[in-house]
């Protein structure tokens, strides 16, 4: 039996629910349309991905011909994302294990709020901290080693450190959920067979939570690749550094990545040059989407449901 008020309510509420779909479809559609313009302006896909000369407004060349080589930007994003995930993952999972299987309930009660508060700290504040503390610190530590006495604190090194700080809470929170989802009976069974606590954790709990932990890492990666302002402040570069230097040095000088360059240049761009930034944004969009799909596949592979 249908009641009028229910029919009206249902319709209105359905419209609300559909908003989500409309928005995400709109994002893909509009960004996608704009993104592909740039290939009509002389850019090629391989050129876009692998050339490192990025000058979408053609300001750098005498006859105003733009260059759409985003390779350097993409490399920057890849390096700092992978670097930060590699460092943050063991720390996060270690912290999560500590909170679920080692610490006393009292310690957990203290730690959990700290973690929550830290998740809420705005990225720009971390970026500010990075600029004011991490960069000078790196400068002092590394400046002499690279021969760069002024700007050695900036760049990939600082960005990786800042990103680690930012994604630690994310990976930790999701890892805690994954570890908690392993039933207590698994832990009991392991201990009853004569395992030490560490053995129990490493041989049963972590393998059982593997899918959830992998999801945590993937989501941490997604967060890292999209991080903008914090990373912007410490990368502080305007062009891709030259390759004629020791690899170590490249990590410690002003550098670029996708989000940072969008942040500094998009505002002044126009026309076809602006479209190039939409292409970059679309690349980020696709990458995040892939991460979502991967994490969903992983989530469905839980050992104990």
């Amino acid at each position: 039996m249908r009641y009028p008020v229910d029919t009206i309510a249902r319709t209105i509420l359905l419209l609300c629910a559909v908003q989500v779909v409309i928005v995400i479809l709109g994002v893909f559609l509009f960004l996608g349309l704009k993104a592909f313009n740039v290939f009509g302006q002389g850019a090629t896909i391989t050129g876009f991905l692998f050339d490192t000369h990025w000058d979408p407004m053609g300001l750098g060349s005498a006859d105003g011909i733009p260059a759409f080589g985003a390779g350097g930007l993409i490399l920057g994003s890849l390096v700092i994302t992978l670097g930060s995930v590699l460092i943050a993952t063991p720390l996060s999972i270690g912290l999560a294990l500590f909170l679920t299987d080692v610490s006393s309930p009292v310690l957990q009660k203290i730690f959990r709020p700290i973690l929550e508060v830290f998740t809420g700290v705005p990225s720009v504040v971390i970026g500010f901290y990075g600029l004011v503390v991490v960069v000078p610190l790196l400068q002092a530590l590394v400046g002499n080693l690279t021969g760069n006495h002024v700007t050695a604190g900036y760049g990939w090194g600082a960005a990786i450190i800042v990103l680690v700080i930012m994604i630690l809470p994310t990976i930790t929170s999701i890892s805690i959920d994954a570890l908690r989802a392993v039933p207590g009976s698994v832990r009991e069974a392991s201990l009853a067979l004569g395992a030490t606590r560490w053995q129990m954790m490493m041989t049963t709990v972590v393998p059982a939570a593997a899918a959830g932990l992998a999801t945590a890492v993937v989501l941490g990666m997604a967060r890292a690749i999209g991080e903008t302002l914090a990373v912007s402040l410490v990368l502080a570069g305007h062009r891709v550094p030259s390759w004629d230097q020791p690899l170590f040095n490249i990590f410690f000088q002003p550098n670029v990545n996708i989000t940072q360059y969008i942040a500094i240049d998009f505002g002044e761009s126009y026309g076809a040059g602006r479209d190039a930034y939409f292409t970059l944004a679309f690349v980020l969009l696709l990458t995040s989407f892939i991460f979502v799909v991967v994490s969903r596949r992983l989530s469905s592979k839980k050992a104990y449901l």
């Binding site: 989500v20 928005v23 995400i24 903008t228 979502v292």
Partner: peptide, 11 residues
């Protein structure tokens, strides 16, 4: 919703 949640805020 999950896809939208993953979109970086700059994008």
């Amino acid at each position: 919703a999950e896809t939208l949640a993953s979109v970086p805020s700059l994008v």
